[in-house]
Design a protein around this nucleic acid. Sequence first.
DNA 1: TCTATTTTTTAGACTAATCTAAAAATTTGT
DNA 2: ACAAATTTTTAGATTAGTCTAAAAAATAGA
Lengths: 227, 227
Amino acid sequence: METAYTSHTEENYIKAIFKLQNLTKETAVSTNDIAERLSTQPATVTDMIKRLAEKKIVTYKKYYGVLLTSKGEKIALDIIRKHRLWEVFLVNKLKFKWDEVHDIAEQLEHINSVELISKLDDFLGNPKVDPHGDVIPDKHGKMKQVNSVPLSSITKKQSCVFCGVANHEARFLQYLDTLNLNLGNTIQVQSINSFDSSYKVKINNKHSEFFSAQIASYILVETGNGK
Amino acid sequence: METAYTSHTEENYIKAIFKLQNLTKETAVSTNDIAERLSTQPATVTDMIKRLAEKKIVTYKKYYGVLLTSKGEKIALDIIRKHRLWEVFLVNKLKFKWDEVHDIAEQLEHINSVELISKLDDFLGNPKVDPHGDVIPDKHGKMKQVNSVPLSSITKKQSCVFCGVANHEARFLQYLDTLNLNLGNTIQVQSINSFDSSYKVKINNKHSEFFSAQIASYILVETGNGK
DNA sequence: TCTATTTTTTAGACTAATCTAAAAATTTGT
DNA sequence: ACAAATTTTTAGATTAGTCTAAAAAATAGA
């Protein structure tokens, strides 16, 4: 009894619920939040949620909210796996820029073929992260936890490695491009402004840059002294 | 005023009409034939055809039949281009076999991104034909005519090149695999049985094979003396 | 030609996914 | 605690795509 057929629309709801669930740690997800995320009406969400509950993809309590079942979570992780693998393909093979791939991957993630994803994974060299540093779930839906932190949480002069972004907007990604800042680059904190919490850093031991507190909160880094 | 949005379903009808139109040269396509090709009911086809006619994708005359407009033909050729490019990707890059790719390409052909197809085309080296030897329309919907003929139309001992198949069933393609017969191989006609029109041939100057008249009709070849 | 067969269309109904407007339940503020 | 505001659900309708059954048109046969 494998995961029954899910329509594109259902998959989009499942993904939205998954994202919201992992944002608002574990408390049930609200109808309004799903509606906003999917640019749809709350009434529509209520309808869809009832259908997903019938399929045992979510648990639903009226006026309270919704949570994915383990079956629903598995579907969500599979879609995310496909989305991120396709993003790797688009950037590494087709030479798209990292700010251009999201919408195309949103389409490709619904293609339904286990063999395709397995062969794509191999073709890409079984990547562990996507072009934005997000971890790619494995074929069983397991997602290795990473111990990255926002640059803004670093409180002393130290060296760290740029390993992800906490904001996926094209404008932000394009901004990082103008700085020549790429995943894997070393960021050396040179000074922290105690008034506005802005950062002066050196990238790859070469050029100096300035990050506002906001930008620093969107830049995820790994420090040597892992978890 | 570019090609307005077409749903997956509409695209499948457009493709079916295109294929039938090119099969039954130029006479209008019948409701029943479309229904059969899409495994749907004639009544459903009538409904859809009316919608396509409203969108100026087909011309439709009640009880007579349907034909694509130039707009409809352009859409069809674009879908076919996408289908065949994805097939090249699946076979050449992901190492699928030529009998395994059709269903996956049926899904991928509906992905909507001009940039994606343009970059995919470049990534694949701008192939002219797909893994079955079918010509890939260019980005303007132009499809270069090829002068291939079925092996069954060859009437004298001569050499030719295997360049396509007139039957895309997996079972037939797998059969050709067992013979180690691949696109580009030389087929040398050694004798033609005047009783049952079967062929004895030599492939790549190496091994001899026997083709029944039926199989010979499914094997497309190019002879040196192309027009 | 005129009846029988086949093809096509119409009519009416269903499902998935959506909407708006109104009702019901929950949460918030004082 | 209870009225006001917010959130959620229900009710009723719409659209795309599909179906079955019946009616209408076209084709074929004698």
